[in-house]
Design a protein around this nucleic acid. Sequence first.
DNA 1: TTGCGTGCAAAGGTTTTGCATGGCA
DNA 2: TGCCATGCAAAACCTTTGCACGCAA
Lengths: 140, 140
Amino acid sequence: MKNNSGYKTKQKENLLAFLIRNKDKHTNVREISVFLAGEGTPMGTATIYRQLEKLVGQGLVRKYILDGSTGACFQYIEEADCCHEHFHLKCTSCGQLIHVDCDFLSEAQNHIFEHHGFTVDSSQTVFYGKCSECSKAVQL
Amino acid sequence: MKNNSGYKTKQKENLLAFLIRNKDKHTNVREISVFLAGEGTPMGTATIYRQLEKLVGQGLVRKYILDGSTGACFQYIEEADCCHEHFHLKCTSCGQLIHVDCDFLSEAQNHIFEHHGFTVDSSQTVFYGKCSECSKAVQL
DNA sequence: TTGCGTGCAAAGGTTTTGCATGGCA
DNA sequence: TGCCATGCAAAACCTTTGCACGCAA
């Protein structure tokens, strides 16, 4: 049911190709728009939003809304990795966003569900704090 | 240092009173605006944003950016409840804020520091997801 | 009096929607 | 031929900013 989703168009292909190529990080609509235009295969903003909405609905793409940043971020989800959700660490000093794919955090997620009855959504959860470099800087 | 913050005005009082009265759930700028207007004590949108920004800076109010919702959410933080180091679980459906003081999460904090060099600030970090009741509601 | 607080309006940015056209099946 | 997809422009939203006036201290 997730493959039969309308017609196949070049725009759709280009968008998905870009998302897959950048599956290790998240991107946003502006980046997508700029990149596709640069490739000579421009895609209207409205169309990008409409396609992303469908992809999110199909579970192929995840949508993030991070703290200070402007607008939503999107990231392709590799189906094989579905069980391996990852968390975000955001440094409140330098703003760096670190991706962590770690078994321990998955365990923490399970723990919270089993002991506190709470289902954590890793795509929305961000750990705030200081990265190693900024931690050092503070101690100077 | 968090009490001496400028002049005392009626708008400021009304805003804080509303936030405290609704400290058990999150609210947003529109709700605040509508409520205060209905009370006969209207407050300009810009002023609401400016005051909320200050309150967040003072640590009296927490700002959330939740996924599906439109815009940011704000919630008053009761100081007495937060003196001890613990984590927060916030239900994105009902807005309930759950306090969790759990060894496992402290371990997670240590793990992140040792394995990822990142110092998590538990007072700023919030786990987003669905509480047990809202999880059930979704499955209906 | 000093300077922060306020309100209005305008600007900035992201996302959505309407409508006519274009392209897949 | 149907119907979905696209693109453009306009609209809808949320949030921020500029500026003049009001009010607390």
